[in-house]
């Protein structure tokens, strides 16, 4: 019981720190003379989370980098419209999720890696960009075969352990749909990996 209370207290503290940090960022962005400073704080706070979310979906560093920069440009263009109804983090992750899905659709990434960019995939699994073993490589290639939304849901849950209701909020889906999407993805991965080994 004590342990549970301690975990709860740590989580609440973390949440409060995040909210504090977000409110400082927003205060700075709202004032014209500190807008750039506030935006720099935002970039420093969220750049790694946005990048990794993109990288897990595309594997290729250059694509993840493109998406990360597009996300920040979108945030910059729309930050004045952010009213604070949702948490800043949720708003940013929603933009990221949309950008990832758009990128997947535009590049015809859906269901497979674009065949004209297969060299980029080989490079993505070279020692310079990849530190996993053969099983990990098969797992990553399997993820690329998932439909974009399932891939996004699966990576958010699997890597970041994001709660289903938060994923639902960020992707503007119902919690039930997110759960179903995650389980479909997990089943497909099990089946595909089972065929490989």
């Amino acid at each position: 019981m004590d342990l549970q209370r301690k975990i709860l207290s740590i989580e609440q503290k973390k949440l409060s720190e995040e909210n504090n940090s977000d409110s400082i960022i927003l205060q700075n962005i709202k004032a014209e003379h500190t807008k750039m400073f506030g935006f720099r704080m935002l970039v420093d706070t969220y750049k790694e989370q946005i990048y990794w979310q993109a990288r897990r979906n595309f594997v290729v560093h250059e694509d993840a980098d493109d998406v990360t920069q597009n996300v920040f440009i979108k945030i910059w263009k729309n930050i004045d419209k952010f009213r604070g109804d949702a948490k800043l983090a949720s708003w940013i992750y929603r933009i990221t999720a949309n950008e990832i899905i758009n990128f997947v659709n535009n590049k015809n990434y859906a269901h497979s890696f674009p065949t004209d960019e297969i060299e980029k995939l080989d490079e993505a699994f070279s020692l310079e960009y990849f530190s996993g073993d053969e099983v990990e490589k098969v797992f990553q290639k399997t993820l690329l075969n998932l439909p974009p939304r399932q891939r996004l849901v699966f990576t958010m849950r699997y890597y970041d352990e994001t709660p289903f209701d938060q994923i639902a909020e960020q992707l503007e889906l119902s919690t039930g749909a997110v759960k179903a999407s995650y389980h479909h993805a997990a089943e497909k991965i099990k089946k595909w990996i089972g065929k490989e080994f």
Partner: peptide, 28 residues
Amino acid sequence: KNQKTPFKVPDNYFEQLTETVMENVKTQ
């Protein structure tokens, strides 16, 4: 390297990313 992700980024990528983004924003 990210905690669970087997992928790596080029050296100093995240340090330079902030500057690249700020440059893009200024260009915009």
